[in-house]
Write a protein that binds this DNA or RNA. Structure first.
Lengths: 302, 302
DNA sequence: ATCAATCAATGATTTAAATTCATGCGGGGT
DNA sequence: ACCCCGCATGAATTTAAATCATTGATTGAT
């Protein structure tokens, strides 16, 4: 078996030109090196160096081992460096799970600066989970979960990252656009456009329509926020989104936010992660940056 | 220090799914593996697996080490295989030194079949040596020397590979072409074309012209055999080459061989190599094939 | 819920391997 | 001829690795 140590020896002997010098460089005695070399050579069945007087000349095998050492040792050294970075929490992969569709816009703003600060961390975003976001956390499919429902389970911890108001989105000039707030009954002649998720996870149902036993005239689902707002602007329906998101789009797309009910619907978004990961530096840093980013995002418009 | 053994462990644990199974596969006790793993982990400063009940889940570090193992271990295994081949003399590099210009044509015929029989051997040919062919042998710049001068030195051995007659080459229809042999005086009005080497190494000087105190009207040098013969055919001079070589070219180029002196000049070509290499299989095989090839080459024409 | 089976961790002991120490041998240089 | 210097080698020592024996924990079956 060729061991890493053997490659160390081959490289060092080549560098130093003699066994004795190499032994010093490797913090060994000349004797130890001599023994090791002899054992290696009889194991390989071929000399690694030919002894010409006091000089050593690498044989074919020696030359090959040298090239091997020059290829492999840097890989070992790089690996140790990398594992060290992982150990110090400076490197790893951060898989983010999203249970909050509109948060994608917010996430993009967090990830940009994050990638700059953590060049050693690869970020991935997943939006579909076979056993829900929490299952994905437990199953190590993701490392962080962005969710509005902080379901407490032992082994998981949550941190609130931002609050926002969920509002109705209507086209500019719509009848509701001028009212101070919308009533559930106002939606009974409207088409409601939502992301394609179960109704239980849509606040406009659970906290607005269902309590009033109302329902919209029709219900359409659309995957992406952009198209959704285009549809609203075109008068094809109304939707429910975070206020800050609507206000951000309002520059480009003629839509207006309307409060849902007199008191509005307030929401809170949490980051969840496994307890044992809480001390991992690059995960912790993501939490911190997420909260900071929030500040600027939710306040881009007065 | 990440050792090869550690990579073995990581790979085997991944393959087997448990420490105990991996321990068996590695012919170790469960305890030994456990100890080694613990030491490795505290050396790296990070766990390689997280223990979830009795299951092991690789950490980021573990996943990285696994990919490392899958890259590195095959290289080690391949290296051992290769060194084994070198040890058995089935692989290596064969650097041939040539001190005999026209022999290049002959060499080409040897090398072709040789490369087929020894797919693990790389062949290289060198024609210029700072300290002569023998110096190149001693200096390990070459492994085999093709030479007409078998200078005996301790540590070197020679084998004759073929005999041939060195002849004068004249254009077809030349005055000398019909004579049974040429005399030194015949060259006094001719241009002599040779390879660009010292006169001491040209037999036509040392064994033909100089003993008779003759010299040609002019002396030109040309590197390649083909051009040399083209020049001869064009009447620009005469040359001296092995008879078999001239006869081979005579099909395509209108030249004729003429004996040098009544008795002709007989030459012998030797292969020289270092004594300690004599038992290397692929070198020995080259010797054998060289002799065999000779037979067919020197007798291609009656 | 209990029990047996299986797996991992650990401490003590044994075994094996690597290293050192002391010494001999031989080639090169002065 | 002499003295370094570098490599080889055998015996002693130190260090590391493996085993044995045991424990605690988890899982699956009864």
């Amino acid at each position: 078996m060729i061991e890493r140590h053997h490659l160390d020896i081959v490289r060092e002997v080549d560098r130093c030109g003699s066994l004795t010098a190499a032994a010093n460089a490797l913090h060994l005695t000349q004797s130890a090196l001599s023994h090791t070399v002899r054992k290696l050579e009889q194991q390989l069945g071929t000399p690694v160096w030919v002894r010409e007087g006091r000089k050593l000349r690498p044989t074919q095998s020696g030359l090959y081992l040298l090239s091997l050492a020059n290829r492999m040792l840097p890989q070992f050294e790089h690996a140790e460096d990398l594992v060290g970075q992982i150990a110090r929490g400076q490197r790893g992969s951060l898989r983010i799970g999203m249970e909050c569709h509109p948060c994608y816009q917010w996430l993009l703003k967090v990830v940009g600066p994050y990638l700059e600060q953590w060049p050693g961390v690869d970020v991935d975003v997943k939006q579909r989970f076979q056993f829900g976001g929490i299952g994905a956390l437990f199953g190590y499919d993701i490392d962080v979960l962005v969710t509005p429902d902080p379901l407490q389970r032992s082994g998981l911890i949550y941190e609130p990252v931002f609050d926002y108001e969920q509002v109705l989105v209507v086209p500019k000039g719509h009848a509701l656009a001028t009212k101070p707030w919308a009533e559930p009954a106002d939606l009974e002649r409207e088409t409601l456009i939502t992301y394609p998720v179960a109704a239980e996870r849509l606040d406009i149902y659970t906290r607005f329509l269902l309590p009033a036993h109302s329902s919209p005239a029709r219900h359409k689902t659309i995957e992406t926020t952009d198209i959704m707002l285009q549809m609203v602007a075109a008068g094809r329906g109304v939707s429910a989104l975070p206020r800050w998101l609507v206000e951000e789009y309002a520059h480009r797309i003629p839509v207006t936010p309307v409060r849902l009910g007199q008191d509005g619907i307030d929401k809170q978004i949490f980051l969840g992660l496994r307890e044992r990961d809480a001390s991992v530096e690059y995960l912790h840093s993501f939490m911190t940056m997420a909260k900071e980013t929030t500040w600027s995002v939710t306040r881009t418009l007065p």
